[in-house]
Amino acid sequence: MSIHSDLIISRTDGRPMYLQIIEQIKQRIALGDWPAGSEIPSIRQLAIDLRISVITVKRAYFELEHEGIIVIQHGKGSFVATNTQLSRQVWEDELNSYLEQVARLAALLGLSNEQLIQRLHAAASHKQELL
């Protein structure tokens, strides 16, 4: 089965395009839309679909391969790695990167650890109410 790409590259997102591709592919894999072992669009095909350069997609795929999330088989195509621990790990990594951001912003605002924890509690209970 081959997967039709439905990634969206935002022009107003300040981050480089390859980072947007990496994030969106990770999300699709984590959610199971792109199951382990399945074939994903080739580098060239994704570039054509998204109308972005081949080198940008290549860079994203090489980083995903380096992280063990996909496997690039030259001449055969690219596949989602068959690692079942992956989806949890992806979200763990994402959470950690957000937490680093939070810590940085808290330091910028001069919040104490206690104040930061309170704010986190407030955010978590707000999320509960929404559910």
Partner: peptide, 8 residues
């Protein structure tokens, strides 16, 4: 889009 397809 037409340019990108050339590069296929």
């Amino acid at each position: 889009a037409a340019l990108m397809e050339v590069l296929a």
